[in-house]
Amino acid sequence: MTLKVLAIDDSKTIRELLRSVMEEAGFDYTSAVDGVDGVERYAEVRPDIVITDINMPNMDGYGVIDAIRKGDIDNQVPILVLTTESGDKLKQRARQAGATGWIVKPFDDVSLVSVIRRVTGIG
């Protein structure tokens, strides 16, 4: 089966970067431009994994996680947080918010794909 990835980031650059990596890996890629858009796309796409930025207008990444975890559609989907920090505080916060894992920007293609495979078990 093809893995469906939903990426949520307000930066077009990051969205495009993710697209190139995901498509290269043979994943089915969808992106959203902010938190609210992300939650809407989530309901439509029903992805196997969500990758979300934290700092976004409208709804931030924690809001996205919260909306998905409290929602009634597949609320245990793996969610990876994209972040520029790698501090323990961030990790703890992400974990508490319900994130499955995190990816430190700038990410390298191979590790990103392997983390996705690791938490989804797909591919």
């Binding site: 307000d10 930066s11 650059t13 990051i14 970067l17 700092n55 976004m56 207008p57 520029t84 920007k105 700038p106 990410f107």
Partner: peptide, 18 residues
Amino acid sequence: NSVFRAVHSIKGGAGAFK
């Protein structure tokens, strides 16, 4: 917030291209 995000996004993108 939006001022912060602008700088933050520039940093994020710039990082990707080293």
